[in-house]
Lab assay of single mutants.
Amino acid sequence: VIAMPSVRKYAREKGVDIRLVQGTGKNGRVLKEDIDAFLAGGA
């Protein structure tokens, strides 16, 4: 999974398994917005 360390930390704090999140950034990078969208109700 491609993600910046700050995004990985954010996901950990929110209790999200970053491997389950679909990245929308360049080359499938997971963004902070992707974590929020995942929490809001889905992949």
Rank of each mutant, 00 (worst) to 15 (best):
V1Q: 09
V1K: 08
V1M: 09
V1A: 09
I2Q: 09
I2C: 05
I2E: 09
A3M: 05
A3I: 09
A3S: 07
A3L: 05
A3Y: 04
M4E: 15
M4I: 12
M4L: 15
M4F: 15
P5K: 15
P5N: 13
P5M: 11
P5S: 14
P5F: 06
S6Y: 11
S6D: 14
S6Q: 10
V7T: 06
V7P: 03
V7M: 04
V7Y: 02
R8S: 07
R8H: 15
K9W: 10
K9M: 09
K9L: 11
Y10T: 02
Y10R: 02
Y10W: 04
Y10K: 02
Y10M: 03
A11I: 02
A11M: 01
A11S: 06
A11Q: 01
A11P: 01
R12M: 15
R12V: 15
R12L: 15
R12S: 14
R12K: 15
E13N: 10
E13R: 12
E13M: 14
E13H: 09
E13Q: 13
E13L: 14
E13D: 13
K14T: 07
K14Y: 07
K14A: 08
K14I: 06
K14L: 11
G15N: 11
G15S: 07
V16I: 10
V16K: 01
V16D: 00
V16P: 00
D17I: 05
D17S: 06
D17Q: 05
I18A: 03
I18L: 10
I18R: 01
R19Y: 09
R19I: 07
R19D: 08
R19L: 10
R19T: 12
R19K: 11
R19E: 11
R19N: 12
R19P: 03
L20P: 02
L20Y: 11
V21L: 07
V21E: 00
V21Y: 00
V21A: 03
V21N: 00
Q22W: 09
Q22D: 08
Q22L: 12
Q22H: 14
Q22P: 13
Q22A: 12
Q22V: 14
G23M: 02
G23E: 02
G23Y: 02
G23D: 01
G23L: 02
G23R: 03
G23A: 08
G23I: 02
T24S: 13
T24W: 03
T24E: 03
T24F: 03
T24N: 06
T24G: 05
T24V: 03
G25A: 05
G25W: 02
G25S: 04
G25H: 03
G25T: 03
G25E: 02
G25F: 02
K26D: 10
N27Q: 10
N27F: 11
N27C: 07
N27A: 09
N27R: 09
N27Y: 11
N27L: 09
N27T: 06
N27S: 09
N27I: 05
G28Y: 06
G28K: 07
G28M: 06
G28S: 06
R29K: 09
R29Y: 08
R29T: 10
R29F: 08
V30M: 03
V30K: 03
V30T: 05
L31A: 05
L31D: 05
L31R: 10
K32I: 12
K32L: 11
K32S: 06
K32Q: 08
K32M: 12
K32V: 09
E33F: 08
E33D: 10
E33S: 14
E33I: 13
E33A: 14
D34K: 00
I35S: 00
I35Y: 00
I35R: 00
D36C: 06
D36V: 06
D36R: 05
D36Q: 05
D36T: 05
D36Y: 04
A37F: 11
A37Y: 09
A37D: 10
A37E: 09
A37T: 12
F38K: 04
F38M: 07
F38V: 08
F38A: 07
F38D: 03
L39T: 06
L39K: 06
L39H: 06
L39N: 05
L39M: 10
A40P: 05
A40N: 13
A40V: 12
A40L: 13
A40R: 14
A40H: 11
G41S: 14
G41P: 09
G41N: 15
G41W: 11
G42N: 14
G42S: 13
G42E: 14
G42I: 14
G42K: 12
G42T: 13
A43V: 13
A43Y: 14
A43M: 14
A43R: 09
